[in-house]
C-alpha cells in the first residue's frame, strides 16, 4: 500500500520535474511534443496506481472521473497552448474562443443570408402573436440546425423503413437474397456522395431539398438492407424450428421470432447508418446548400473565421450525440430483454 503511494508520488514528482527542467533551460518550447508524450505516459502510470487504491464501491465514480477528467485536461491544455502560442490558433483556436463563437452564431441573425443557427426561438412568442403558426414556421425555417436535422430525419426514415423491409425479405427468402445480394454489396462500397450528381439530375429542382434527402435515404437504405438481412440470417435456426413446432404461421413467425431475433443486429445497423447519414448530409451541404450546419461550417471557411468553423463542428457532434441517445432510448423500449 505504502509502496503504491510512494510510486505515485515519485511518478508525479518526475512529471513536475520534467517540465520544470525543460522550462528552466528554455527547452520547453522546442521539446513540447516529446514532453507531452512522456507526460501522458507518466500520467497513465499515476492513474493506474491511483486506480488500484480506489475501493470497490468508489470504482464507478473513479472510472467516470477518469473518462470525463482527461478530456477536460486536454481542453485546458489546448486553451493554454493556444494562448501562449504553442499551437497555431488559426488551426486550433482556443476552446474559449470556440465557445464564444458558438454563442455568437446561436444568438445572431445573418441579415445577408437570412439565416441563423437555431432559428431565433426567443422570437417565437412575438411571431406567434403577430402571425400565428405560419409566422413561427417562417422563423424556424431560417435555422441551419433544423434544416440539417430535418434532412437527416427525413432521409433516415425514408431509407431505414424500406431498407429493413427489403433486408428482412432477403433474410427470409433465399431466391430474393441471391438475386439482390451482389448488387447491394456492389453499391455498398460506392461512396454515397458519388450518387449525388445523378440524384440532382433526376429532380426538377436540383438545388431543393429533394436530392439532399434522397441521397441520405439511399445510403441508409443500402446499409439497413444489408444489416437487416444479416440480422435475420444470424438467428439460431432452432428458434425458427421452435416457432413452427409451437404452431406459428408465417406472419406469427415474422412477428414473434424473426423480427425480435434480428433486432439487435438491426439496431447495430441503425447506429452505423446514423453515422453515414451524418457524413452524407454534411458533405452534401458543403457541396450544394444555402442552409444547414454543413453549409454554415463551410461558409466560415470561405470567410476564414476558424472558431466559427469549430462551432459548426461542435453542433454536428451535438447532433450526433443527440441522435445516438434517441436510438438508445428506442432500443431500450423495443428490446427490453437486453436491459
Amino acid at each position: 500500500m505504502s509502496d503504491n503511494r510512494r510510486a505515485i508520488l515519485s511518478l508525479a514528482g518526475a512529471l513536475v520535474l520534467l517540465h520544470l527542467v525543460l522550462a528552466l533551460f528554455g527547452l520547453w518550447r522546442d521539446w513540447a511534443w516529446p514532453a507531452i508524450g512522456v507526460s501522458f505516459i507518466l500520467l497513465v502510470l499515476v492513474c493506474e496506481r491511483l486506480g488500484r487504491m480506489v475501493p470497490a464501491r468508489w470504482r464507478a465514480t473513479y472510472e467516470r472521473a477518469l473518462a470525463l477528467g482527461f478530456p477536460l485536461l486536454v481542453l485546458i491544455l489546448w486553451q493554454l497552448g493556444a494562448r501562449f502560442g504553442l499551437i497555431n490558433p488559426l488551426w486550433f483556436p482556443p476552446p474559449s474562443e470556440i465557445a464564444r463563437a458558438l454563442w455568437e452564431v446561436s444568438v445572431n441573425y445573418d441579415r445577408f443570408s437570412g439565416t441563423s443557427l437555431l432559428g431565433r426561438p426567443w422570437l417565437i412568442p412575438s411571431a406567434w402573436a403577430e402571425g400565428g403558426l405560419p409566422a413561427v414556421g417562417a422563423l424556424l425555417s431560417e435555422s441551419h440546425l433544423l434544416a440539417t436535422v430535418g434532412r437527416v430525419l427525413a432521409g433516415f426514415l425514408l431509407g431505414a423503413i424500406p431498407g429493413i423491409l427489403v433486408g428482412v425479405v432477403m433474410g427470409v427468402n433465399q431466391t430474393v437474397r441471391l438475386m439482390l445480394d451482389t448488387s447491394l454489396s456492389a453499391i455498398y462500397v460506392l461512396p454515397k456522395i458519388a450518387i449525388f450528381p445523378i440524384v440532382m439530375l433526376m429532380f426538377a429542382n436540383p438545388f431543393g431539398e429533394g436530392p439532399k434527402i434522397v441521397v441520405v435515404a439511399l445510403a441508409v437504405f443500402i446499409l439497413m438492407a444489408i444489416n437487416a438481412m444479416a440480422g435475420v440470417r444470424q438467428i439460431d435456426p432452432v428458434y425458427l424450428m421452435a416457432g413452427r413446432n409451437y404452431g406459428a404461421g408465417p406472419w406469427q413467425l415474422l412477428r414473434h421470432v424473426i423480427l425480435p431475433g434480428a433486432l439487435p443486429v438491426i439496431f447495430a445497423g441503425l447506429r452505423i447508418a446514423l453515422g453515414t447519414a451524418m457524413i452524407v448530409i454534411i458533405s452534401v451541404e458543403f457541396l450544394r446548400a444555402k442552409q444547414g450546419v454543413g453549409y454554415m461550417t463551410y461558409y466560415y471557411w470561405e470567410v476564414l473565421v476558424p472558431e466559427k468553423m469549430y462551432a459548426g463542428l461542435v453542433v454536428v457532434m451535438a447532433m450526433g450525440v443527440a441522435f445516438t441517445a434517441l436510438l438508445y432510448w428506442l432500443q431500450r423500449r423495443l428490446m427490453p430483454w437486453r436491459r
Partner: peptide, 15 residues
C-alpha cells in the same frame, strides 16, 4: 406434438 430442444430454444426476447 411439442418438442423440447437440447438448446432449450426458449425465446430470449420473451419473458
Amino acid at each position: 406434438n411439442s418438442v423440447v430442444f437440447q438448446e432449450y430454444a426458449i425465446f430470449p426476447w420473451k419473458t
